[in-house]
């Protein structure tokens, strides 16, 4: 095992974590500001991926596909908020769970209806194909490196948006006291739609980027959704910084566990047993991580408020 291999795996973990962050950021914003559990967030990710793959295949440009995926997810998100979600803010969390579960069914089947049963494939754009040479003799795919950079840029952008702009100020105010900002003359309904669409757009971007790494198919959103929930719970619900730290943590633990645990067990077990125990334990690793964090800090690492 060379250091180059280890560095490559660490980069893979960070890349996975950054993608998770794009999902988790929207989820945690929507929960923090509107108090809504949105199970259909994974569907927005799927919609982003499908529109990106379809438009890229049609026009022949990944970049136009990416923009289309972003816009489509944001538009569907805004529409979903206006038609359904805003009726759920005053409801029980359980009603929100059932309603957004119903929307998963509608979106999944609707997507299959529109795009067919076959998975779509999305090619890595020409500009980003190939590998780059990094220090320590690491050769790393340019596309994955670009994902890390874009994700970090978006994270910084989101942080600036929330801490430095007027909209961000309204979002933070909405988190602490929604009635008060309404009384101060901010249109809460519009603010909520914007926040929801923003979260949806981030999910759409994540879906578009991941679409080139795996096949684009119905049901791709749910595993990511569960992981994104794991992330926001570890980070502390409503906290963007928490989501960033937790998503990189989860990305690293998952990726490194998958690679190194089977090898670790192979040191003292026979190969087939080591593979099965190692892979089972590595799939469990992030859940063990979450359980430990919650037992230690029942409100997550960066508990924002009660």
């Amino acid at each position: 095992m060379t250091s180059a291999f280890v560095i490559e795996q660490i980069l893979n973990g960070v890349q996975f974590g950054v993608m998770l962050f794009l999902m988790a950021a929207g989820l945690t914003l929507v929960f923090g500001v509107m108090g809504l559990i949105n199970l259909a967030h994974g569907s927005l990710y799927m919609i982003g991926a499908f529109v990106c793959a379809w438009v890229s295949g049609w026009i022949g440009s990944f970049w136009i596909g990416l923009v289309a995926g972003l816009l489509a997810a944001a538009a569907v998100g805004a529409l979903m908020e206006i038609l359904v979600i805003r009726r759920l803010y005053q409801r029980d969390h359980l009603d929100q769970v059932l309603a957004t579960f119903a929307m998963i069914l509608i979106f999944s089947e609707g997507t299959r209806w529109l795009f067919g049963d076959q998975p779509l494939w999305l090619d890595i754009p020409q500009l980003l194909s190939g590998a780059v040479d990094l220090p320590f003799g690491v050769s790393y795919p340019l596309y994955r490196l670009a994902i890390i950079l874009v994700g970090v840029a978006l994270a910084i952008g989101l942080y600036m948006l929330i801490t430095k702009t007027r909209l961000g100020m309204q979002i933070r105010a909405g988190e602490s006291d929604r009635e008060m900002i309404g009384a101060l003359g901010i249109n809460i309904a519009t603010l909520y739609t914007v926040v929801f669409a923003l979260g949806a757009a981030l999910a759409g971007v994540a879906g578009s980027f991941v679409g080139a790494l795996q096949s684009v198919q119905v049901g791709m959103g749910e595993p990511v959704l569960i992981l994104a929930f794991v992330v926001i719970v570890i980070g502390g619900i409503g906290s963007i910084e928490g989501a960033l730290v937790a998503s990189v943590l989860v990305g690293l633990v998952d990726t490194l566990g998958r690679v190194f645990l089977p090898q670790f067990f192979a040191l003292f077990m026979e190969p087939s047993a080591a593979t099965s125990v190692g892979s089972a334990l590595s799939s469990t690793s992030i859940y063990i991580l979450m359980a430990i964090v919650l037992i230690w800090k029942p409100k997550g690492l960066f508990a924002a408020h009660d």
């Binding site: 059932l98 579960f101 119903a102 929307m103 069914l105 509608i106 999944s108 089947e109 609707g110 209806w113």
Partner: peptide, 12 residues
């Protein structure tokens, strides 16, 4: 699934 989703949504 599509119609089941619509019905569930209606119930909620």
């Amino acid at each position: 699934q599509f119609f089941l989703g619509l019905i569930l949504l209606g119930v909620v």
